[in-house]
């Protein structure tokens, strides 16, 4: 029996789901632990390493930081200029700072962000984040975000 009471019914399914999750978690720990015991290892094992051995710290954390920075800047600066800056920075992060790579990064950043901005913002009329560098051309009825 489960009484459906108006004021608390929003918790019925979440609580059941959490219960199921706890049971499943216990089952996972038990079966995997038992399997380890059968192999002659201890029931609990120290978790293996999370990151790859010699993982690329610069690129992984750089991606995370740039991503967060990108989102912060979007609302402040506006889509087109922010994208231009961050697509360039992502490119530099992934391909390095040799002269050839830098030129490639700059070209990709400019072309891609202008293209996407015009295609989505103007042609398809999708709202993009706007900020201080967004310009509205009221006479022509469009905005470069």
């Amino acid at each position: 029996m489960i009484q459906v009471v108006y004021s608390t019914e929003h918790w019925i399914v979440p609580i059941i789901t959490m219960g199921v999750l706890v049971v499943l978690l216990a089952a996972i720990i038990l079966t995997e632990g038992r399997a380890r015991v059968q192999e002659g290892k201890p029931f609990f094992q120290k978790p293996g390493r999370f990151f790859l051995e010699n993982y690329d710290k610069m690129k992984l954390w750089g991606t995370l930081l740039l991503f967060a920075g990108y989102i912060f800047a979007l609302d402040v600066i506006g889509f087109t200029v922010t994208s231009l800056i961050f697509v360039f920075l992502f490119n530099v992060l992934y391909t390095g700072t040799s002269k050839k790579a830098l030129i490639g990064s700059a070209v990709i950043a400019v072309v891609a962000s202008l293209l996407i901005s015009v295609m989505f913002g103007i042609v398809f009329n999708i709202t993009l984040p706007s900020g201080m560098c967004s310009i509205t051309f009221a006479d022509f009825g469009f905005t470069i975000y």
């Binding site: 990108y70 697509v87 992502f90 490119n91 992934y94 391909t95 950043a109 891609a112 962000s113 996407i116």
Partner: peptide, 20 residues
């Protein structure tokens, strides 16, 4: 096609999609 050149653009398009 080098993926490291594509991913920054993919990130940008993903952001457009999520925002919209």
């Amino acid at each position: 096609i080098p993926r490291q050149r594509l991913y920054p653009v993919i990130i940008m398009i993903c952001i457009v999609g999520a925002y919209a």
